[in-house]
């Protein structure tokens, strides 16, 4: 991510140190991860020590310090999905992709994250791939859905 773009984002928030989280969120959503160089730039621009930025970037779930795959799988592990068998779906996704929650495969094809509720409890168990919701999943269908991604 270019320094100019980072500066623009920081300026949009009036360069206030209290907007640090908002700035990082915007970088994350545009770039899909937070490269070290970007964090250093934010540190300079907002006059916030890099250690504090690291603290925040590792504390909140929305941030990633490593690159993400082409397809992001969000698997809902909320209570409603859990009682409807989300663990079995997770097992299947892990089998198919070979990665665990929080990981990205070596080909940068899939990143897998578990989330605590997508708020579509009527559709549980729910799997979201690149923002598209797949509801009422069963292990077999899960594998079929994932096969469609290149």
């Amino acid at each position: 991510m270019e320094n100019d773009r980072i500066d623009q984002i920081v300026d949009k928030h009036q360069g206030e140190a209290s907007s640090l989280i908002q700035v990082l969120l915007e970088i994350q959503s545009e770039n899909h991860w937070l490269p070290k160089r970007a964090l250093e730039r934010v540190s300079v621009k907002l006059q916030v020590p890099l250690t504090r930025i690291q603290h925040i970037a590792t504390f909140y779930k929305a941030f990633s310090l490593v690159p993400k795959g082409r397809h992001e799988i969000h698997l809902c592990m909320g209570t409603a999905c859990h009682v409807r068998g989300a663990t079995r779906i997770l097992d299947t996704v892990q089998d198919v992709t070979g990665i665990k929650p929080g990981e990205t495969d070596l080909d940068l094809k899939f990143s897998l994250e578990t989330v605590n509720c997508l708020g579509c409890c009527a559709l549980g168990p729910v799997m979201e791939v690149d923002g598209k919701t797949h509801g009422k999943m069963a292990p077999g269908e899960t594998a079929d859905v994932l096969k469609n991604y290149e």
Partner: peptide
């Protein structure tokens, strides 16, 4: 609203 299975606030 972080409670899993609750989405009334949303």
């Amino acid at each position: 609203e972080g409670d899993p299975g609750a989405y009334m606030d949303r």
